[in-house]
């Protein structure tokens, strides 16, 4: 539940009720510095990766923001998709979100058998071994915004054993 009366967390420097543009970048490639966001007030965040600490800080910033705010996420797809999913949980709408994706970075594959995620740089259609259950997963273009990951499926499930 996003609450407007929450006291500001130390260090983030975002005043409660912020309605400008929040620019969050991830990793070395993610950079929103050159992104023009117009005349609206702007708040920059830099993270190494979309780890739990980073996502929790992003959530706390969004929880102090009000409707009217916009979020720009830049960096590897795996990080910005995880951040986008966290933002959606806070109530941010797709139209309020801009993704600047570094398409050369690894993609996240979701395993429907054990629910673990595995990163890969291989293109859709290739196989990857799930790091959770070692199933050989065929990767697809089927993307879940909620999971921030592409669906994988057991690659040889239909072959006669």
């Amino acid at each position: 539940m996003c609450s407007a009366s929450m006291p500001p967390a130390a260090g983030t420097g975002l005043e409660p009720g912020f309605r400008g543009v929040i620019c969050a970048s991830f990793g070395a490639t993610g950079d929103t510095a050159g992104q023009h966001t117009g005349v609206q007030p702007r708040h920059d965040l830099r993270f190494k990766a979309a780890n739990p600490e980073a996502l929790s800080e992003l959530r706390s910033v969004l929880e102090r923001s009000h409707v009217g705010v916009r979020l720009v996420l830049a960096g590897p797809p795996a990080d910005i998709r995880a951040a986008a999913a966290a933002a959606a949980e806070c109530g941010l709408q797709q139209e309020e979100l801009t993704l600047l994706s570094d398409e050369t970075a690894p993609r996240v594959i979701y395993c429907p058998h054990c629910h673990a995620t595995t990163t890969t740089v291989r293109p859709a259609g290739s196989e990857v071994q799930c790091r959770g259950c070692a199933t050989s997963l065929a990767t697809t273009d089927h993307f879940s915004r909620r999971m921030g990951a592409y669906l994988g499926y057991s690659a040889h499930a239909e072959e006669a054993s």
Partner: peptide, 9 residues
């Protein structure tokens, strides 16, 4: 009211 709503509104 339009300027003070949380993101779930």
């Amino acid at each position: 009211q339009l300027m003070t709503q949380s993101l779930g509104t």
